[in-house]
Every structure is written in C-alpha cells, then in structure tokens.
Amino acid sequence: MEAKGGGGIDNIPYYLGILLQGAGITVTITLGALAIAVVLGLVLAAFKVSRIPFARGFVDIYVEIFRDIPPLTSLFIIYFGLTYIGIRLDPIPAAIVGLGLNGSAYCAEIFRSGFAALHHGQREAAAAIGMTPGMAMRHVVLPQALRITLPPLGNYGIGLLKDTAVASAVAAPEILYRARNLATETFETPLIYLLVAVLYFCLTFPLARLVDRLERKRRSWS
C-alpha cells in the first residue's frame, strides 16, 4: 500500500501497517531481553542467598550499578562502546543484551524478595516431614515464590516493553524508529506520533490489566 497524496486521515492504514511491522520487532526485543533478565536474575538471586560472601557482595554491586545507569547508557556502551574492543553487535541483538542486562538487576531483586517473603518455617516444616531440600524447593518454595513474584515480574515486563523504545537510537527498526522515518518522509508528525502512543498503549494496557488481576488474586490469598 502506498501513501496517498491527500495526506491526513486517509493515510492511517498505511502508517499503521508500517508501525505494526515495527511492533513485531518491539515484541521480539522485549521477549529476548525478558528471557535474559529472568535467567540472569534467577542466577543472581541464587548467589545472593548463597553462603559465599564474595558472591553476595558481587550481586549487591551488580544490582546497584544497573539500577543506577540509564538503559540508554548501557545500550550505547554495548552498541558503540564495545566496537572499541572489536565487538560489533547488530542493533537488535545489542538492544536485547543491553536491556536484558539492565533488567537482570531488577529481576534479581524481585526473585530475592520473593524467596525472602516465604516464612522459613515452611522450609523447616518440609524438612520435618522428611522432604529433601530439593523436594522442598520444588513442592513448597517455588510454587509459592512464583505466585509472589509474578505481579512484579509482569510490571517489569511492561516497563521493559516501554524501554525498548530506546532501541530506536541504535537504529533497531522497532515502532519508534519506523515512526521517525515516516515522520521525516511525510511531515505528518502529529498524526504519526499519536498513532505511536496509541500503539504502545494497546500493547501495554492488556498486560497492565493482567498484572492488576494477578495482584488482586494474590491479596485475596494472603
């Protein structure tokens, strides 16, 4: 489909088509970064509750650094900075790694507080009825910890989806990048950026409703 000469409302389907292709990239970056953040976050949380002082200190410093540095900065360090030592990543993988590393600090905190929220009596009770630590983890700790961590993880996912907009700065062809290109071609910036806002809202709003429902459910359990 081509942009029509008339401009304005008639072009909305054409713009939406292009922006929706960007939405695919946005979702790809979100899911990729989420996977890295969750896996790395679990490992970091396990270190944090371990008995090795060095590992605990390392996690503290790691979490503090990534909590305090803007995602845009870590993305630029990975995309532009690492070329200095010969590492050259494409925009989309760079965005996935950058946002994933940034998010792993948040996920580590979410998992840590999720585990901490479980009363230690539960683990002792499991041991008392003869469960091995592994069984206690699988049947007692994890099912409850997962329920506790799901709402904050969902909130993190929403924040992450919004943060993927910074990937436009390294030319990853996600929603905002395509919008910028469209805007410079057509000069219909108000309409295009309004469509962008609506599109992001349509992506995040259902997730936000889902998280709300999970939170309400959790409150009714406790």
Partner: peptide
C-alpha cells in the same frame, strides 16, 4: 494515569518535540 504508564517516555518526548512542530 493509565495513558502515562502505558506509553514510553521517549514517545511522549518525540510527540512534544517533533510532533507539535507542524501545529
């Protein structure tokens, strides 16, 4: 609240900085 929480800050910045120019 729902709109500002659902739209990236960067998109809002672009809307204000680039988007309002033609108006």
């Amino acid at each position: 609240v729902e709109i500002t929480r659902g739209v990236p800050a960067l998109a809002i910045l672009f809307l204000i900085y680039f988007g309002l120019v033609p108006l």
